[in-house]
Design a protein around this nucleic acid. Structure first.
Lengths: 180, 180
DNA sequence: CCAAAACGGAACGCTGACGTTCCATTTCTG
DNA sequence: CAGAAATGGAACGTCAGCGTTCCGTTTTGG
């Protein structure tokens, strides 16, 4: 069943995001599936993780594509990007929070989205138009963006901030910093 | 020998910061010591990690204390704090990057410094004086601070940013965000 | 210089997670 | 409804890392 396959991949991403040493039975349970069934789809742990990595990368890629970063002002596009990232929070944390995941199982660069990344394009466009800080490198801004999104996800998971208001908080801090 | 003890603790923090699943022989090797010797000081893995946690917490605590956060303007104090945090980067990453570490081995709160934290005091003072954003909670600002410090440490470890200039970059982004 | 302490290597048993196989049961599908 | 496919439980061997013991070697300190 194809439904089982995606349930396993989603569960793997979700569980491994919270605990990268999660055991295989834990993943199976989270997917509502027996350990045997997991092995039927993915012979060994490495195969499973690699498949989950690719699945997550695709889901994130689609979310970013739908954000249409090349349209509108850079600030508007940035808003859509943050919202898109937050909507796939679990997958983001799974893929990029532990450098080892992408380094060991990723198909492309050790960390961060692949080259030709629309996110980097957006940042560079914003810098070229003079609205994004160009004292910082585009890479730095990109990493700051991720860091704030991660922080927002943590807050939501912890209940400190509502899932509804987190995007606004992340964007405000990202744009203006913490000074008044 | 007391020198051996601190070498083991420092190695544990450093190695576990980079790979939380690091094996015990790896830690011993990083400390320049045999596995047997590690066991002589710390009977089992849990004891070792707990000791490393307490050691790191103390080192970080001293660094923060030396930053004298209650002196000068909040912005000045914030600069000193960022510098202090960056100077103990490895230990910070070890303690707080993986929520499980403090949850399983920490003596106080599951994450972040203990209550009565001078850092929170500083943030609240800055908000009261009207220089720090008070649309955000103090906790949010604190977590953003950590996130940017972590990001700065990553960049340094990766060679993207010089160890010398990273404090200025972190502070600039923290204060003004990424817009011009 | 010599005894005592510290160290490191080797070997052993133990445990938890993994990967495999077998088979009974449930769920599709024609 | 009947055969085929998918599922999940149980049991087994394997293996890596842990914790322990023993003993020879190095370092410390009087």
């Amino acid at each position: 069943m194809e439904r089982t396959r995606s349930a396993i991949l989603a569960a793997a991403a979700s569980v491994l995001a919270r605990d990268r040493a999660a055991t295989l039975p834990q993943i199976a349970a989270a997917a509502g599936v027996g350990r045997t069934t997991v092995h039927r789809y993915y012979p060994d742990r490495d195969t499973l993780i690699k498949a989950a990595v690719e699945d997550s990368a695709q889901v994130i890629g689609e979310a970013v594509t739908e954000a249409r970063l090349d349209e509108g002002t850079p600030v508007e596009a940035l808003h859509r990007l943050v919202t898109a990232y937050l909507s796939v929070g679990d997958r983001l944390v799974f893929l990029f929070n532990d450098p080892h995941v992408m380094r060991d199982y990723g198909v492309d660069q050790p960390d961060g989205p692949p080259p030709g990344d629309p996110v980097l394009d957006l940042i560079e466009r914003g810098q070229a138009e003079g609205v994004f800080d160009d004292q910082s490198t585009a890479t730095w801004i990109q990493h700051v963006l991720w860091a704030l999104v991660y922080t927002g996800i943590d807050e939501v998971n912890k209940g400190t901030v509502s899932r509804h208001g987190v995007a606004a908080t992340v964007i405000r801090t990202l744009e203006r910093g913490i000074l008044t």
